[in-house]
């Protein structure tokens, strides 16, 4: 499957550099914040860095490396990292190994259902460049083309120590206020959606409303809407279109993508 970005889909390199998350999307108006606001933000970041709930997405390989990371051998809880069950509760989406097209859809849905600040960790070579599945017709190659990825863990398999290293790096980034890749999904939604559409077709859609959220929370950027999101508006989206057909008024259904 060719998911190498076409010309039009390539954004400025600093935004899509694997592992370069945060740099591409600097914290907004860092200078204009009041002192009070800065203290509050620093305190919040301090707490965020020390309390991380992980959603393990382990449909690929590599899940076996995680139990030792969590349990008595390495004990992630001593740095405040706990596994959680649903995307609603989680801060980190840890994706182990390859993602087939089917699972990628679920990953994207799960990612969109998480609450920001949220962080994505790609585990293993397959999330970086396809790894040993580079020639496969059914797996994607670069995870950060579809959802903004904070950090990758190279290796096939990475050992628990490597997982720990990357978690500690993430904690460091969060503490410094650098781990803001999740905002990139709102600001450049059109880019990610375009890449998703090239894999799943023009009818691709999720029941979440990324553009509405971006507007609501002030993350709306010039790249939020574009030619790909226009397809959503034209009713190409499957779930949202069905929702419209069945629920013509939006009083109940909240703000449906339109």
């Amino acid at each position: 499957m060719t998911d190498k970005p076409l010309k039009s889909h390539v954004r400025p390199p600093q935004d899509t550099m694997p592992g370069g998350a945060g740099q591409g999307c600097p914290a907004p108006d860092a200078q204009t914040r009041s002192i009070w606001r800065r203290i509050m933000d620093d305190f919040a970041d301090h707490c965020r860095a020390r309390s991380l709930f992980v959603l393990h997405y382990c449909t690929g390989c590599g899940a076996i490396e995680l139990p030792p990371t969590i349990t008595s051998r390495f004990d992630m809880e001593r740095v405040g990292i706990t596994p959680m069950v649903t995307p609603r509760q989680a801060d980190i989406l840890l994706i182990t190994g390859y993602l087939s097209l089917k699972t990628l859809k679920r990953v994207i849905l799960s990612y969109e259902q998480m609450q920001g600040p949220k962080y994505v960790l790609g585990f293993g070579s397959c999330t970086i460049n396809g790894g040993m599945y580079w020639n496969s017709y059914a797996t994607m190659k670069r995870l950060d083309q579809y959802i903004p990825t904070d950090l990758f863990i190279a290796g096939c398999m990475p050992r628990p120590e490597a997982v720990q290293q990357v978690l500690l790096k993430l904690i460091e980034d969060i503490d410094a206020g650098r781990a803001n890749a999740w905002q990139d999904y709102y600001r450049n939604y059109d880019f990610y959606l375009g890449n998703q559409q090239r894999l799943f077709g023009a009818g691709w859609n999720t029941p979440t409303d990324v553009i509405g959220e971006a507007r609501h929370y002030g993350y709306y950027g010039p790249g939020t809407e574009g030619e790909h999101t226009r397809l959503l508006a034209e009713g190409g989206g499957s779930a949202a279109r069905l929702a419209h057909a069945e629920y013509p008024s939006t009083a109940l259904t909240g703000r449906i993508k339109s």
Partner: peptide, 11 residues
């Protein structure tokens, strides 16, 4: 940390 983090979620 857990409680502050959860209340400080941005969305």
């Amino acid at each position: 940390y857990d409680i502050v983090k959860l209340f400080a979620k941005k969305t």
